[in-house]
Design a protein around this nucleic acid. Structure first.
Lengths: 190, 190
DNA sequence: CAGTTATTTCAGTAATTACTGAAATTACGA
DNA sequence: TCGTAATTTCAGTAATTACTGAAATAACTG
């Protein structure tokens, strides 16, 4: 591997983290390299930079494409494939969230749904189904929220993030106003 | 493996998903089993239920404990260890988020910080640092938000989730009120 | 079309990770 | 203290995953 020291640290770190993130070392390294490099790179440049086999680069790029984490570019008068990552880190975040959901959450959601359709044949199964229903309920809530939030334009999403838990204060305020209005017109029965 | 069919489906699914979630098959299966079983189980019961070796169970329980996903219980007049999962799925979610952040995000954050401290020695390094700064900024924003939100009590968190993107409407309303107030007193210069 | 370059595929091998059984350790109870 | 039950450790092996090099395929060019 022959890279500027700062780049190398970054690339090696992504390689090490790869396994924790559900990708492998090479995939992590290639992603990191593309991310910090200003111009798109072709496969041979990656081979050169990371000191790995051509076939490994080919397979890893395919993997990164499956994750939608990489863009294929073509330069004029050059028939080689060049690759980069999207510039916008928010877009990267969205892609990452979408793909992880698809791989890590959706399959479980559908298995849970399937099991919950069945008739329990014992107390054990009845109890198990109850627990699965709780899990299913939580996951559904989370994914509904996610589907909702992912539609926001980036600057609104950023606002939402910055606001964080402060939103609840806003909610409290709203509650007060609402209950105030209600108490004027028709006070709570409880 | 000798389990009621519904339980078995669930357990096998968690086993299969294990690798995608960064845990292994056995750990996933044990977790699933404990999650749906009403009473705490001891190691031998797990061996029995899943048909795996005693030592594997021991190691996997240790792993689950490292994740804080499992509770150790003791029954009176029985010196064996019994295990369950917490009842509250929201609590489980919090633990999961915390542990994944610790393992998957924090190390990268600290590597980024370290690299960003260094003096770039070339244009390539300068550009790479800019990209890393973008990534660092985004991750910091996300973790700040997370630190903020995780402090909320569960019902507030649930409200926030249910509200989802609708919050932005509330924000728009607030913006209007604020800008209205401002325009009365001292209109924008821009 | 033949020759050249770029990319992919895939069988074999290397590296890593998961699991087992036997032995060691720990924690009691008589 | 000795014996027994519970748990852990760990060396060896099995299973899985990652990677390579050679061969095949695809995409162009003259």
């Amino acid at each position: 591997m022959n890279l500027p020291p700062l780049v190398q640290s970054f690339v090696l770190h992504f390689g090490e983290m790869g396994s924790r993130w559900g990708i492998n070392r090479t995939v992590g390294q290639i992603y990191a390299l593309l991310y910090v490099t200003p111009e798109p790179l072709n496969a041979d440049q990656i081979v050169e930079s990371l000191g790995i086999s051509r076939s490994n680069v080919s397979m890893s790029l395919r993997e990164l494409q499956a994750w939608n984490l990489v863009l294929l570019k073509h330069l004029p008068d050059d028939r080689r494939d060049f690759f980069t990552t999207p510039d916008d880190v928010w877009q990267i975040l969205r892609t990452l969230a979408e793909e992880r959901k698809k791989r890590e959450v959706d399959p479980t959601l559908s298995v849970l749904r399937e099991i919950l359709m069945q008739q329990p044949a014992s107390d054990a199964e009845r109890h198990a189904q109850e627990r699965m229903a709780e899990m299913h309920g939580l996951i559904e809530r989370l994914t509904t929220w996610y589907d909702d939030v992912k539609k926001l334009e980036t600057d609104r999403l950023a606002t939402l993030l910055t606001l964080g838990a402060k939103v609840t204060r806003l909610l409290e305020a709203k509650d007060k106003i609402v209950s105030l209005g209600r108490s004027k017109r028709s006070p709570d029965k409880a």
